[in-house]
Each structure stands twice: as C-alpha cells, then as structure tokens.
Design a protein around this nucleic acid. Structure first.
Lengths: 345, 345
DNA sequence: TAGAGAATTTCAATCGATTGCAAAAACGTG
DNA sequence: CACGTTTTTGCAATCGATTGAAATTCTCTA
C-alpha cells in the first residue's frame, strides 16, 4: 500500500535526473549513490540494493558526460576513416565497412563505445590531431593510411593509443595492423604467371601505400621472371571504375594476358567488362583480385584472389590498442595473406 | 628574438591543457578565452586574434567533455544496429553498412559526430533506452527494426529525436524512413510472373518486418494472379545461407520456377547454387532480389532486383532527425522502390 | 574634462558524477 | 561497558568549459 503510494507520487513528481535527486529520495548522500551504482565498493549490501531498486523504479541513469569529465576517460574509442586519395572510395568499399563491423563487435565486447568519423584530409589538415585531442576518445583506430602516412607518423611520436590499419613500412613509427601487401602482391603475380600469363597489368591507383606495396610485390616477381607489368590507374567511384577499365581494355587488351586488380571491387568491375567484351576468362585473360570479399566466391567464374583475414585484423587492432592504453609500446602486426585459387586465374 | 624565446620556454613548460592555462598566458580571464575560441561573441577582435594565435602555438583544444557537460548537449548522434533475429546478419550486410557510410557523411556535413553501437536485444532488454539515456547523444538513428518493433514504439512515445530505418506499419508511432517494402514485394512478384513464372518461392526469414512486408506484397500479387507462393526461411550467416538454399533447391527446385529473394545477398547465394546445379537462369528459374547493391549489376547474368535509394534514405533520416531535434514531430518518410530489370528475371 | 553609453572583460555559479579523507556507525572482545 | 577495529557514510573538492550579471575600460559628446 505504502509502496504503491510512493510509486505514484514519484510518477507525478519524477524529477530524478541527477544522482543527487536519487540520493535525496534514498535518504543518503550523493557519494553513496555513486558508489552503490558503481556496483562494487564499500557500500553496505542493503543500501546498495535499495538504491539500485530506487534507480530502477525511477528509471535513472547517471550522466555519462559528468562521469567522463571527472574520471578523465571516456570509454570511447574513435574510429576514423581518412578519405584521402579518392573521396568516393570508402563509401562503397566493402572491405573497410566489413572491418568496421568487426571492430564494433570487438570493442563492444571489451566494453568500449565507438565513435566514427570520416574525414577528407585535403579539406582539414588537422584531421587526426583534432580527433585525438578532442577529449572525446581514449584512443583511436585509423582505417587505412590513405595518402596520409607522414601525418600519421608525426602523430604517433606523441600519442601512444593509436593503431592503424594499413601497410607496414620498414622502420615506421606508428603501430599498424594489416596484411603483408607486398607478399600478397608477389603471390598474385606468381599465380598469374604460373597460370600462364606473360604480360601483366596492375589495375589500381598506386598512391595509397597498400596498393603501392601490392604493386611492388607483383613487380618483384615480374622482374625476376622476366615478365612485363605496368600499373594502370583506376579510380574507385562507382561510376568511374567501369568506364576507366573499359577504356583501358579497349586500347590494350591485346598486349596483356594477366590482370592483377588492386582489390576485389576492381576485379569485379574488370571481370564484368571482360565478359562484356567477350574475352574468355581465364583462357584469354587471367584475373586475380585482393581481399577475398564474400562475394568473390559468387562471381562466375568465381574470383581467384588474395585473402585477408578481416576478423583477425579487427581482433588484432583492438587487442593492440588496449595494450597501448595500458602504456605498452606494442609492435605492429603483419598478417599473412593467403592465395585462394578459384576460377579466374 | 623575443618571440623565439617565448616559444622555447613554452615548449619546456607546456602545461597548456585547460582554458585557464591559456588564459593565464594570454593575461585574460578564462571566460574571455572561452568566448574568443567560440569565435563569435563580444570579445575585442584584437584579443581574439591574440588568443587564437596563442591557442595555435600551444596546440590547445578545449576539452569536449567539459563543454558538453556544461551545455547539456553533445553534438553526437547515436547510430544503433539491433542484431535481433540473426546475430550474424549485419556483419555481412552490405546494405546496412552502406547506409551507415552515407549516414556518417550526412551527419558530418551537419556538424555532428556519430557514435556507433551494435546490440543484441536478446541479451539486453534495455538496449535502446540505455543508449538514449546515457547522456552521450543528442539523438538516435536506429538501423533496422529487427524484431524490436514494439520496444521501439514504446520508446518513441517519450523520446522525440529518434528516427528509424525500416518498414512503415499503418498507425505506428515512431518515425521511420524506408522503402515501401510491400510495394517492392508486389513489383518483384509481378515481374517474376510477367517473366513467365507460375510457382513462386520467397527466400528469407519473414520475422523482420521489412522482409515480412516484402513477402506480403508478393503474396498480394500471387494471390490475385492465382499463383502459388511460399516462404522459405533462410538465415543470413555467411556459412548457413548457401547450405540452406542448396538444401531447399535440392528438394524442391522442380516445384517452382520463380524465386523472390528477400535481399540481394540472398539472391547472390541463390544464383550461385542454381549455377552449381546447372539450372539455367532465367530460362528454367527466374530470380529477383531486393536492394540493388552495387555488385548486383556485376553478377553473371546481372541480377534483376528492386532498387532502394540508400543515399536518399540516409539524407532523409538525418534531415528528419535534425527537425526532431528542433522539437518538430515529423511524419515518416516512405521511399518508392524501383524495379531494375537485368538478366535474371 | 566630466559623464553617458557602449564595448569588453572579469567574476562566480553551474553542469553532474567521482573520490580522498574524515566522521560516524556497527561490531567484537576482554 | 569501554575501547579498538572494521564497515559505512558524508563532506567537499574536483574535472574544465560556459554564461549571466556585474564591473571595468573605452568612446564620444557636450
């Protein structure tokens, strides 16, 4: 009876927005409420139960901003995607988006929230620093080095809790997680040549370091085997890609018989153009991609490609970041790529 | 000379972490610094310049947490993805991820940050409330109703700044943006039947409202045309999908000649299985998808599907949310789907 | 040059939770 | 029952920026 009355009264008043309000109702001090709600502490079990009960009844949640301010940590990890070389790349980039999904899961599991930001470095010199120093995040994950390698290096000198997805360069200072792109590139070229190709093309913009490394790896092998390979710049906005590839193929398809696409997305577009031109794959043109997106297995013929383990990558990034939050200066993590032979090479 | 000395000294000391530190250096009060950095205000232009200069030199950024706490708004919009029916769906769900990308762009453009959270409602009854009431976000965008329609409805009664991507039900209370799934379903079935199909199957879990509506639309048409249609439950974890479809086809492919896949992703898997079984598409089996993902144009044969305008959807969600942040009680937005006829039906 | 009025700046309270330290209560034991 | 411990609580300072109101300085006119 009494209890019902209490509840009804509270429904009418219902000004329980702060820990102090709740403290008044519970007849204790704000400090006690804070401790009680924090779960463990030196609060009497009975008082804790009572406060928890009251909090539930009044549907009270402590204000995170106040908490974060006071504790000087936010429980939020920033994830930033620099759209450096190609404004439209990542919008459609399944690879990065999938990585993001996995990162979200890993971070959630560790009790962190995720703040996402996409930036165009050309428009904002200060993109990384601004995010880091905003006071909103405890650490940052950078998805893709884009063409911002140097800036990331600068930041890394003074800021520990940062892990980057991308390519590892000899002697670099920032902690990076990523596949061994150069090795992957080698595997790709080797496969094309093994499959019988004699004159190769690399489809993709060699500006970004990941792509550059893939090309470099392929060239290592091509040179060694005495096979020609040339890079063909291809942009990644959905409408451009197809057109650029079509133009290239129209002019040069007779000169080459093996194509290494910098990513599966490019490979798909390429496959499509080849089929449109009735060039039999792999008989007349070998084709290999990079990433091994889920749909790679679904094309006809299914795409031969270099597999990257996205899930392991995400796990590694979060693991390293958490260790860095504990002041440990971790090494980079280079994941082994894997050749997946399917139907195109 | 003097200036150099100043700079070097500051490099040594460099304790400019708060607005008060900067105020001391500038020889003004904290309030003035705050106003100066806020840009416009009633600060003398000269002092403002000076403070800005100093801030730049000392690489100072105001603490966001303090600011947010004081101003009682965060400048952050929460984006939450409930993984209701199928834990693994969204990990691979290109559609939602692409939508997320567009949302990030739209929000950035409007000056908001984005906090991402993926939740499993079964494990956390309170998923939506907790996020909203955390004090970390000014508003929330829900990506997909999943099987949480009722909970979302409850919340909508007491919380204005929420916009949901999903299906619109007659008389619902929460503001939703999404394609007219029922109409899309009708278009799909009509197309299959026009293309000559006489016995249809719907591939997908009819639990989620979006899918249910697509099925309902298809059934409207099927019934009207005197054609049979039956739903076949298919899960969305990458490894299950293919197997389930294969099983289904193995048993029943002779009984049907038209398949409406609840999403392009399912359609791809289906196309693959059909080709594996040497069932000619579209001759012996018509197939239509839903979403029109970029790769839909890239399969062989290219996928006939129902197009959803993701970009317009994202734009609409953000637009509605901003208006709701201004206390306007907006209507839902139903986007027209569009039939894209390609090679599979 | 005094003084009204405008332009700047300072002051101090505030946002809401956390936490070290001190005070109070509860418990035990001789 | 008194006194030493151990548990629980309360107090008050703190995190760092913002902002209304008060105080100061500057302008300009009579």
């Amino acid at each position: 009876m009494m209890e019902r009355e209490d509840r009804e009264m509270s429904d009418l008043q219902k000004p329980v927005r702060t820990i102090a309000d709740l403290a008044k109702i519970a007849g204790v001090s704000a400090g006690t409420v804070s401790r009680a709600l924090a779960g463990n502490s030196l609060v009497n079990a009975k008082t804790r139960k009572k406060i928890e009960q009251l909090a539930r009844e009044h549907d009270f949640r402590p204000n995170q901003m106040a908490s974060k301010l006071r504790r000087q940590k936010t429980g939020v990890i920033g994830v930033i995607i620099p759209l450096g070389h190609d404004r439209h790349q990542q919008i459609s980039d399944t690879f990065f988006m999938t990585l993001l999904g996995h990162l979200a899961d890993e971070l959630t599991e560790k009790g962190y929230d995720l703040m996402l930001r996409r930036v165009i470095p050309q428009q904002d010199e200060d993109w990384l620093d601004r995010f880091i120093r905003s006071g909103m995040i405890d650490g940052v994950l950078v998805i893709g080095q884009s063409n911002q390698f140097d800036r990331i290096e600068e930041i890394a000198d003074g800021y520990l809790p940062m892990v980057v997805w991308g390519n590892h360069q000899e002697g670099q200072r920032h902690c990076v997680v990523g596949a061994d792109n150069r090795l992957g590139g080698r595997m790709a070229a080797e496969r094309l040549i093994t499959a019988g190709a004699k004159r190769l093309a690399f489809l993709g913009d060699t500006g970004p370091f990941e792509f550059a490394a893939r090309f470099a790896g392929a060239r290592d092998v091509a040179d060694r085997m005495g096979v020609g390979i040339e890079p063909v710049s291809v942009h990644l906005s959905p409408d451009q890609t197809g057109r650029e590839i079509a133009t290239f193929l129209a002019e040069r398809r007779d000169e080459i018989d093996g194509i290494f696409a910098a990513s599966d997305t490019i490979a798909f577009a390429c496959l499509r153009e080849l089929q449109r031109m009735n060039v039999p794959v792999p008989q007349q043109m070998k084709l290999i991609g990079f990433d091994d997106l889920p749909i790679a297995a679904q094309t006809i013929p299914p795409l031969t490609t270099i597999h990257q383990d996205i899930s392991a990558g995400a796990h590694g990034m979060v693991d390293l970041l958490l260790r860095r939050l504990d002041k440990e200066d971790t090494e980079s993590l280079v994941l082994p790529p894997r050749l997946v032979i399917r139907g195109t090479a």
